[in-house]
């Protein structure tokens, strides 16, 4: 089941004009921002499919910039995101790729950097403001949004996974699916943890405080 809650259908409350091209786009941008952990200095956004054809009309560019600024889809600042980005020195470049075929019509690839930090993420807006994440830093993942999920970027060190799992258990939450990927032994790794229960605000902030953890994002 892609949609879990009645509020996926009667909602979200958002700034117009499009749930998939505006609200969904803002969520993809914000997911990238959360995983980077800080406001990006540079961003290159490649848009595919219907995103590429209609992004200007739908304000998809504005919405992704808003997400990168950590605004949510109902933020009254969303329409001004490109101006605000310029003011705070966040350089965003959009590229419309109408040639590369994509599996799903509303796909965006976001590459962001701040100082030494870098992140690349591919997100898909599936309709009604719901998103899926299909790639993070070259890790091919499949986050359908069918369950709430935590994305945890961490150093590949002993105990990192156990400590996160321990915190989840303390919150009396059940892990329904878990996946750990890494680029090289001892380097950067990504945990994807799906839970049966909704993820509140406390758990992600507690996980962020653990040693070896870089950043945490929630897909709800």
């Amino acid at each position: 089941m892609k949609y879990r809650s009645v509020f996926d259908i009667i909602g979200p409350v958002m700034v117009g004009p499009s749930s998939s091209h505006t609200a969904g786009a803002a969520k993809i941008g914000r997911m990238a921002r959360k995983l980077l952990g800080v406001r990006p200095e540079q961003a290159v956004v490649t848009l595919y499919g219907s995103f590429a054809e209609t992004y200007r009309g739908h304000g998809t560019d504005v919405a992704i910039a808003a997400g990168l600024l950590d605004f949510d889809e109902s933020s009254q600042q969303l329409p001004e995101a490109l101006k605000i980005a310029e003011q705070v020195g966040m350089h965003v470049r959009f590229e419309a790729d109408t040639r590369t075929p994509v599996d799903q019509p509303n796909t965006a690839r976001i590459s962001i950097a701040a100082g030494e930090r870098q992140l690349e993420l591919v997100g898909v807006s599936i309709g009604g403001g719901k998103i899926e994440i299909t790639e993070v830093n070259g890790f091919s993942i499949s986050l359908s949004g069918s369950n709430p999920a935590l994305l945890v970027l961490h150093h590949d060190k002993y105990g990192a996974v156990a400590e996160v799992a321990g915190l989840i258990a303390q919150h009396e939450m059940n892990i329904s699916y878990m996946e750990v990927s890494r680029q090289e032994k001892g380097q950067l790794a990504l945990m994807i943890i799906q839970t049966d229960e909704e993820i509140g605000e406390e758990l992600p902030s507690e996980i962020s405080g653990l040693p070896n953890i870089l950043n945490v994002a929630v897909l709800s």
Binding site: G11, V13, M14, G16, P17, T22, A23, L78, G129
Partner: peptide
């Protein structure tokens, strides 16, 4: 209101709100 980038509730989407 939606087209003017105003606040709406998507039901089920913004274009069909």
């Amino acid at each position: 209101v939606n087209a003017a980038m105003g606040t709406i509730c998507a039901t089920p989407t913004a274009g069909s709100a």
